[in-house]
Nucleic acid binder design. Sequence first.
RNA 1: UGGCCUAUAGUGUAACGGUAGCACAUCAGAUUUUGGUUCUGCCUGUCGAGGUUCGAAUCCUUGUAGGCCAACCA
Length: 559
Amino acid sequence: MTTEIEKEKTETSNFLEEIIEAHIAEGRYPGGILTRFPPEPNGYLHVGHATSICLNFGLAQKYGGKCNLRYDDTNPVTEETEYVDSILADVRWLGFEPAGIFYASDYFQQLYDYAIDLIKKGHAYVDDSTAEEIAAMKGTPTEPGKDSPYRSRSVEENLDLFQRMRAGEFAEGSKTLRAKIDMASPNMIMRDPLLYRIKFAHHHRSGDDWCIYPMYDWAHGQSDSIEGITHSICTLEFVPHRELYDWCIEKLGIWPSKQYEFARRNLSYTVVSKRKLLKLVNEGHVAGWDDPRMPTISAMRRRGYTALAIRDWAKRIGIAKRENLVDLSLLEFCVREDLNRLATRAMAVLDPLKVVITNYPDGPGELMEIENNPEDPSAGSRKLPFSNQIWIEQEDFMENPPPKFFRLSPGTMARLKGAYIIQCDEVVKDAEGKPVELRCTYFPDSRSGSDTSGLKPKTTIHWVCGRCSIPGEVRLYDRLFTVEDPANDEREFLELINPDSLKVVPNAMLEASLADGKVGDKFQFLRLGYFTPDPDSTPERPVFNRTVTLKDAWAKAKG
RNA sequence: UGGCCUAUAGUGUAACGGUAGCACAUCAGAUUUUGGUUCUGCCUGUCGAGGUUCGAAUCCUUGUAGGCCAACCA
């Protein structure tokens, strides 16, 4: 039996959990903790968002709290409803249900009222300076900025001007609302940050109700406060914003949400910047946002990654505050571990080589019983047709094998998975000397399950029936980039695309049962890897995506 | 040349002043009707220099390296 102390010992916690545990211990949040996942609906969610989702929802789950989904939709020119829908679908697919679904845009009136309050308290002013002038007066990290000439306007004038901004009396870009803080602050964020800008833009939810929109710094913390978020967790680049986050809440005297920052997790061999992903899609380097090579959640789903594997991965890589580049192999390990447990085994031959068994009766042959999943006896078994004509993998035969090769070659034998042991007697070659057919003999007393032959072939290979297998397309995916960290390479990232990231096998031979595969089903093609049906499949022509290969000691040994 | 954040095996992450662990990766071996799975073992680490202390990855000083901040983006 595991004691509580032992549990604590085995479960290491990250710094955010320590903070939350301390808060719980001191009874700071009697109503429970409340976190939020705050995406801007301006693109598809990617693997980085996935870790953030797992963090925020996971923390809430672990400590008996709740987690909201809040769309940070304060910039109407970049945001679309299409993204709103895909984001929610991705969150749910990952296995989380938001306690509430909110939109920063629903708080526009409240945020406006807060701004009026701030102006009345003398902490904000309307600035007529242009963007260039504001930038020029901002100073630099080493030099203080200069006060705007409009900084000392009266409360009455500010109120009047701000209300008229809202009423649409001023042109876009002609005025802004700014917090009056300190133009000499060593923290650039505190040098009278912009709170509102004028944009005559149609918003995907609020329509044309507003022509002024709040900036991130004015919207985010207050939205947190309105919802009663206890732990507002964001990435490291927002550290300098925390001072402003606290300043706004304090000046307004509203419920104090608190911000905590962690280092975003980066995955090797990929990029996640919106601009770069867009370029990959728009220039046709990939087939779309859900091309299985993309780092988007929708792409990982299409590729066959499971939500459980992604959640497990997020848990394993942990949370900290230092820069990191997480090795893709850990994600692949998590995917394999989950798929090994649940994938139905099947056989498929990607590069078929015909085998004729010369001493086996011609005709339909026998049905061989074969397990569906050795890891899960409850998965049962199926009957696989065997005959004197089968397909095996070209790779499983070598006429002149190197030392450690223990598959088929002239004179050697191999077990056909779930069937008989065969021996290669003769190689038929084409004009170029390429093997096109193997003539083999089988050992009748070596039948799988009732083998009395006493033969011990060095390996077992996969095969499919030469008479009743079905052709299909198989897409083999590999990492999209050739370098670990394409985002931090001197070379243009497009030059770093892996030319072999997709190999299409147009005519693989599949065991007939694979015709019934549905999108979402998970298969292991024996000795090849994990595969999942692609939505491009048709009843006439199944299409499979390779999720990830099996670990392959032979491939490694070959070099 | 300002402010802030960070630095532990190849990678990621623990150790909360008291034996530097774990996972992945790598390598070696056992098992195996998947060169898969499973199991066992090996190798490798506290950025540097001072200081405090009986004792420092941990605290202090300093250096170095990396990151963030001068968008009417989030």
